[in-house]
Design a binder for these strands. Structure first.
Lengths: 129, 129
DNA sequence: ATATCTGTTATATATTAACTATAACAAATA
DNA sequence: TATTTGTTATAGTTAATATATAACAGATAT
């Protein structure tokens, strides 16, 4: 999987890497059980520091996206991810200000649902409806 | 309108203030044409520095949520906000990583639409369907 | 007109976040 | 044994965040 970092925009590098890995998992480009590059390898490939990748992996591990073992390396592991109440509340906290912005811009609920549905479909085409 | 700042969480103060004002506009608690407190007044009320509020107001002005005139003060002004292609693309950039997270957590598209619709309804109850 | 309040701008400082640079360690592997 | 792994420690730089004073010009009210 290819990662592209934009050093011009103000979004932190570690966040760009993190989001792209999560999008890779969501889209199926990164399958469950698949190996990820080692910390040093990915850092060299992208052209960033080792600790920036380490920060990403540590967060992904902490949030349940990957598992890490010495020498066996980094591996996609989504078995612990759940859509329980705890996550839904986190999700609501993240989306709430974005929805407020959309309302201020005059977006209807139906238009908003169209846009999000299209993104959902684009990321995960195999899901029906 | 009452603003509540959480100094414990890692979300910047200026962003908390900004989001709450935008949510106020979205929900109708802040109507178009309504006056907002002066920079110094709001800073004193919340217990933060003047420049932090100034930063919020400058951004809100720049993004088209308010208009500012000397002595006449700060005023909600949403007439320039549009849901054109430019904004939709910004919206998609913001929501995309959140949707990716949701997919990884096993959320279905229908469940996602339920959650966002509920938030939409909660912020803007007068909108039908 | 004088005093006051407004947004705006400038300068300075402290704290934290983000990123990088080396280095070292123990565990696992070839 | 040599190498690669994740992990941790230390140190440094740059940028973002927040605060503290200060000053300015425009607008308002007394």
């Amino acid at each position: 999987m290819l990662l592209k970092i934009n050093f011009s925009i103000d979004k932190p590098i570690y966040q760009q890497v993190k989001e792209q890995i999560i999008e890779g998992i969501a889209s199926g480009k990164l399958e469950n059980g698949e190996s990820l590059p080692s910390i040093r390898q990915l850092a060299t490939d992208i052209g960033i520091n080792m600790h920036t990748v380490n920060k990403v992996y540590a967060q992904l591990k902490n949030e349940g996206y990957i598992s890490i073992h010495k020498r066996s390396g980094v591996m996609v592991n989504t078995v612990n991810l759940q859509s329980g109440k705890k996550y839904v509340e986190e999700l609501e906290e993240k989306i709430k200000p974005i929805i407020a912005e959309s309302i201020c811009h005059g977006l209807t609920k139906e238009r908003f649902k169209e846009i999000t549905s299209a993104l959902f479909q684009h990321l995960h085409p195999e899901l029906a409806s």
